[in-house]
Design a protein around this nucleic acid. Structure first.
Lengths: 213, 213, 213, 213
DNA sequence: TATGAATGAGCATTCATTCAT
DNA sequence: CATGAATGAATGCTCATTCAT
């Protein structure tokens, strides 16, 4: 391993260290209320150091979203790679993927919609921006491929697979946000798992072609 | 009309004027990047005036959410009041309600999740907070009642009506957020209407009890 | 009584009403933290009305000091007018005057030193400013005359009567301020009356020419 | 000298630099009219820097009072430590202490009564608050001890030493305030030194037990 | 005269970012 | 590379004062 490579590795370790700290802080305080100093303290580094690894606060934030999108894509490709899934198995597999994404990073997902603000996008490097775009595009496409199979083999009603993907992702995001918001407003709430379970079950029923004789 | 009443009306008009301006500004900039001065300018008032009608920035923001929740509740109660809906009609009716809510205030809804931050809740008057709580509770309950009917007359599979309500609301929120975020990332996107249409259709299929002979 | 005069009287009544309210509010909150709206509410008037009777906040404040200075002068002239006081009676009389001044307006006196700020003086009309100057000058002179008598009839040690006056007034102001500040810091404090009593007793002893044999 | 210690020393220097600037600005403008930016400019620092060393404006202000109280206490303990003072020497010593306190910080003393506002106390850290309390308590007690000696050895009339202390402090504060206020109102004024001289002389005469043969 | 809604300058405080060490 | 003190622009909010009614 060359010295160059070792350095690169070391640098990556630091980045991760910062991102882990940032995730924790953003989760608790939200994007705006979290300060760079909070994050620096959590990472046991000084504020200045953060700027050696991330151009600015927005970029640090966006990098977190990148990470979860990467994880999502890997999981979806895994589902897609598996041959011979029955429709029910496929939906089940998607459900588990979503649930794992949630476990991987429950609160960042909630906050990921911070990126919606076109103001927030202004401070991102074009590279990071397009990386995020590509990743989410790829995730959607992979999901669409999964549904395409189902349609092709006659298991699913004929619909645009891309719309199916949208609905799955929206369903998932919506449920996470919704549960979270109910928790905060202290309203009785079914567990995320239960709601997710039911939602996907309903979804599965809905897209299965009912056999008629 | 008494002088008292006239004043009250005038005051309400001003509040609306401010809220309309605030909605526009928050929509474009998001909560944190929008300044009170931005909003004042948009409303063609001075910053100080805003504080005559809203205790602080958070409260102004929350008032916007209140408005849409009020509209939602009214629409849902309307659906619930209609007798003799077939399952399909009911789902159709819900879909239209959601779509109208979106038209009523497309972007605030996207941002409504700002309220999730428990930090944001700190600056709200308890009255406003409980009003928001009650409204969303009532909306959920009304939606649940609608599903209860469907379950009772055997049209729907037996499931907790409250979970159904959650899913509808989450589905809706999720789709709006998702479409919005795709628009911002410049990804090709199906129209909101189309996605909503399909999603509710799938949902309807999923919860209907299939008659077999 | 002419209509002109009646109006003048009415105007004076309003002024007094405002000053009474102002005194109460300034006493509780201090000059800076008291707002014109606070005072208006206390006077059951609107903020705008205050400005019909007082040019600005500083002037309203200064008018209060004027009132107590007027009261002080009247009392001192009374003491001076009394013939044939023994040294002890004279000091006693001064002590009571000071105590009554305190009772007349305990907290404004404490705050009267707000006027020391040369910034505060900038907003006063020259008339009001010179009125305050004259009144305090007169009070001092009257006090000095009282001491002059004591010196002339051999009862007091020979010293500049004006310095005596200064000391009396400073002693009094200091004690009031000091007691007040100890009260706020929750330190055990002798009652104002007791401290005043002792202080004047000491003062009397100090300036009396002790004749023996 | 360790690096830790050097930093601490540097930090203390900055604090002093800010306090010196603050003293100047508060003296001229008074607490409310002085802005943090004024002080920053005077200290040739930026506004933000002030907050690295003082929690807020109130705390910066209170720290000034602390300093003078510390100086007072040291001087008083010095007086108390000296053995074999005659009554006259003791009073002389107190007078000089007071005069030096005035020289040390003439105008802050005038403003020290800003702390009387219970509103002002709200923003202070409990630590600072209790430090101020303890210091003034100790100063009073030390002064009381000084008088106790005088009473014990029969030189002073028998009176509560604490009341004596109160009077001395009040006398001093009162004179400073009074001189200052006369200066502002452009009234002819005896010099502080002369008034102080006379006042203490009178005080000394008043508390001395007159020897009779 | 009296009102009180509206004003807008003013200010304390925060915090992302920089840079000398 | 790492630091963390310093920066200073930015912003929410206040309140003395005005003025149309």
């Amino acid at each position: 391993m060359g010295i160059q490579e070792r350095k690169e590795r070391e640098r990556e370790r630091r980045r991760q260290q910062i991102m882990v700290a940032a995730k924790r802080v953003f989760s608790v305080k939200g994007f705006s209320k979290a300060t760079m100093e909070d994050i620096a303290k959590e990472a046991e580094l000084s504020p200045g150091t953060l700027y050696l690894y991330f151009k600015n606060k927005d970029e640090l934030y966006a990098s977190l979203s990148l990470r979860i999108l990467q994880y999502l894509l890997i999981r979806l490709e895994h589902v897609n790679a598996e041959p011979d899934l029955t429709p029910d198995q496929m939906i089940e597999s998607l459900k588990e993927t979503m649930y794992d994404v949630y476990e991987f990073d429950p609160l960042i997902l909630v906050n990921m919609f911070h990126l919606q603000s076109s103001e927030a996008l202004k401070n991102l490097t074009p590279e990071l921006l397009s990386e995020i775009r590509d990743l989410s595009q790829n995730s959607l496409n992979t999901m669409a491929k999964i549904f395409e199979k189902g349609i092709n083999n006659g298991a699913f009603v004929e619909k645009n697979p891309l719309v199916f993907s949208d609905i799955v992702w929206a369903l998932f995001s919506g449920i996470v946000l919704w549960e979270e918001s109910k928790r905060i407003f202290n309203q009785e709430s079914n567990s995320l798992k239960e709601t997710l379970e039911t939602a996907f079950e309903i979804f599965a029923q809905g897209i299965k072609k009912m056999e008629r004789r």
